[in-house]
């Protein structure tokens, strides 16, 4: 049963595009296990190689969908893969503030991804997020600027915080949590695309497409913030979520990123890059290098290496720009354990 109504444009505008869905709950809970085909084979990726595309974009006014389409082409993403598929884009809207647009995935990057996926034949593109610190998703959309874009493009937004969940076996087994409660919406989409911001993180070192998956867990089960994951260990939770959610694709908004005391209180950093790929570990490793951070020194990336994907330069086939030439040094704060000693030499 789909909870997403058919809307007229006027209704979409009035609604602020926020949809909560609440299907399938029974008093006994939901026991359906979803076994999706892996878009990437962790064992194979870990043992062999992965491809990551780095695009250059000086600002958000350039032809971003063109850059993404170039990236898809370079990475071998073909129309046949996407034809008729439903794509879920998961941006990072952890705590939108009207005056601090470097906290969240830029709305024009989300628009570019919508355009690119539709261009390649996707039947439907949805945008969904479970904001970490905000319960009012209508205000989240307005403060982030994403609401305006989605209204114009007539794209549905789902607040994952209020989604009824289903319990999925925790395939990472790092936290000790036997299951993870994922949003029912995941059963109705074909691709999950993690769309983080390029940021440093005071507890994780960096926050990219893997850490962005914190936001898929519904707040009604995990709270605001998803404090259960803090107790289970931030690094462990990142690994469990990546192994369990298995995002099909990652697109990192690194045009303007955040350095210093990320993920919220840091400062804006012009980086001018877009990073894309099928394997989130490889994408994040490349994004870390673009910040002049050694992925092998970021605890969760090091642990993911050889398991969920490769991080070594010799195992990542770089497409597009050369990371060594377009990287910028992001400020690190040495007093944070997770940021100490992780600089790329």
């Amino acid at each position: 049963m789909s909870a997403t109504p058919k809307w007229t444009r006027r209704q979409v505008i009035k609604a602020g595009l926020v949809v909560g869905t609440g299907a399938f709950l029974t008093k006994e809970g939901v026991h359906a296990w979803v076994h999706r085909e892996l878009p990437w084979d962790p064992a194979k990726e870990a043992g062999f190689s992965s491809q990551v595309f780095v695009g250059s974009a000086s600002n958000y006014s350039v032809n971003l969908s063109g850059i993404l389409l170039q990236g898809f082409h370079e990475l071998g993403v073909k129309k046949e893969e996407l034809l008729g598929k439903t794509i879920l884009l998961k941006p990072n809207l952890v705590e939108p503030q009207r005056t601090e647009e470097h906290i969240n995935t830029h709305p024009l990057m989300v628009r570019a991804a919508i355009e690119a996926f539709l261009h390649l034949g996707a039947a439907k593109v949805l945008v969904a997020e479970g904001s970490g610190h905000r319960r009012d998703s209508a205000d989240v959309l307005e403060a982030s600027g994403l609401g305006e874009v989605l209204r114009e493009d007539r794209i549905t937004y789902t607040d994952l915080n209020y989604e009824t969940g289903y319990r999925a076996l925790n395939l990472g087994a790092c936290t000790g949590l036997a299951t993870l409660t994922l949003p029912e919406l995941f059963k109705r989409v074909d691709w999950i695309v993690s769309m983080p911001k390029l940021k440093t993180h005071h507890w994780a070192g960096v926050t990219l497409s893997m850490k962005n998956l914190f936001g898929v867990l519904p707040g009604i089960y995990y709270g605001w913030p998803k404090n259960v994951l803090h107790y289970a260990g931030v690094q462990n939770s990142i690994l469990d979520l990546t192994a369990t959610v298995k995002p099909h694709f990652s697109i990192v908004d690194g045009i303007v990123g955040m350095e210093g005391d990320g993920p919220i209180m840091g400062t804006a950093k012009d980086a001018g890059v877009v990073v894309m790929g099928r394997n989130p570990v490889s994408v994040d490793a490349t994004a870390a290098r673009l910040m002049m951070i050694d992925p092998a020194k970021v605890s969760y990336l090091k642990r993911a290496s050889g398991w969920l994907g490769p991080i070594g330069l010799e195992r990542i086939e770089q497409r597009g720009e050369n990371p060594a030439s377009v990287g910028r040094e992001f400020q690190l704060v040495e007093k944070f354990d997770a940021m100490r000693g992780i600089r790329l030499k």
Binding site: A3, G22, A23, Y162
Partner: peptide, 13 residues
């Protein structure tokens, strides 16, 4: 009551 029309009931809602 359900979160949206034509959905199952939920205790929080």
């Amino acid at each position: 009551f359900s979160l949206l029309l034509n959905n199952p009931s939920r205790p929080d809602v």
